[in-house]
């Protein structure tokens, strides 16, 4: 159920991907997402698949574990696919029923969009699975560092993200627990129409919010007690340094993007 969401969960392992500087992984993820939108042909997607496959292989995270994250977006996937299928106009009509019709272009777009979405989720899952949330936010903080000059509270944003990531699994577990407790009191979260379902969420959401606030309060106190006072004068236990493997990785990634752009231009 909700435990299936792998996004934002770290999978401990010793691999090249795990050891990379988080900035490399963040930049790579962004580049990969861009590359997915550059690609618009079978060759392009083949290259993207190959790239993703190699990264997953190197990351030593079990493939099953990565794809578990997809379950959460099945509905979104089906919806986009359906919309594309029926709404995109094309030259060859494959099927027609009243006002509904499916065209070759529709099928093509639906398939590619679905692949994009799936790869996007898998790609970002690989990043979060191989990077501890702390590294991730450290990387983000460092990457966005220059924005401090225009008064963007980069450190605070990064800290908020890292805390959010730490508490996601805890709150998910808590949701599960409250849900079970209410089911034990005869609550029904599954049947009924949309309004009834929304109403049935109240006994779940109220306790969840209360608990989240209590936790936030406790945590703020615990952080203060440990002398947290913002980013000023703070040192790092794990400062970020680029190593040679990070430079190599950057090289590979930019090459990949170049290939994708070339493929997009000449192999459509």
């Amino acid at each position: 159920m909700i435990r299936d969401i792998t996004l934002g969960q770290y999978y401990p392992a010793k691999s090249v991907i795990h050891q990379l500087d988080p900035r490399v992984k963040l930049v790579t993820t962004v580049i990969y997402v861009i590359s997915l939108f550059v690609a618009n042909g079978i060759v392009g997607y083949a290259v993207a698949t190959l790239f993703l496959g190699v990264v997953i292989k190197l990351s030593k995270v079990p493939f099953k574990y990565i794809t578990k994250g997809l379950k959460a977006i099945v509905l979104l996937l089906v919806l986009t696919a359906v919309f594309n299928l029926f709404l995109i106009d094309g030259e060859i009509v494959l099927w027609r029923w009243g006002i509904f019709r499916i065209t070759d272009q529709g099928v093509r777009t639906a398939v590619f969009m679905a692949i994009r979405l799936i790869y996007l989720i898998i790609g970002s899952s690989v990043m979060t699975l191989t990077t501890t949330p702390n590294d991730l936010t450290d990387g983000l903080e460092k990457l966005l560092g220059p924005m401090k000059k225009i008064h963007v509270p980069v450190h605070e944003i990064a800290m908020m993200m890292s805390i959010a990531l730490r508490f996601i699994p805890i709150l998910l577990e808590e949701t599960d627990k409250i849900m079970k407790a209410q089911i034990a009191r005869g609550a029904d979260f599954e049947t009924g129409n949309l309004i009834q379902k929304a109403k049935a969420m109240v006994p779940l959401l109220v306790p969840l919010f209360i608990s989240a606030f209590r936790r936030a309060n406790d945590l703020a106190m615990a952080m203060e007690a440990r002398c947290y006072h913002g980013g000023d004068g703070r040192t790092k236990m794990k400062p970020l340094h680029y190593e040679s493997r990070d430079k190599t990785a950057y090289g590979v990634v930019w090459c990949y993007l170049a290939v994708m752009i070339l493929v997009g231009r000449y192999f459509t």
């Binding site: 501890t132 440990r226 947290y228 703070r234 236990m237 794990k238």
Partner: peptide, 26 residues
């Protein structure tokens, strides 16, 4: 509450949180 006072997502990073705030060298 043990859950509500651990800030780090890895044990050692959590233990390092206090010294980081104090500005202790790496």
């Amino acid at each position: 509450n043990p859950d509500n006072q651990i800030i780090g997502t890895v044990v050692e990073e959590d233990v390092g949180f206090g010294p980081e705030n104090l500005g202790v060298p790496t």
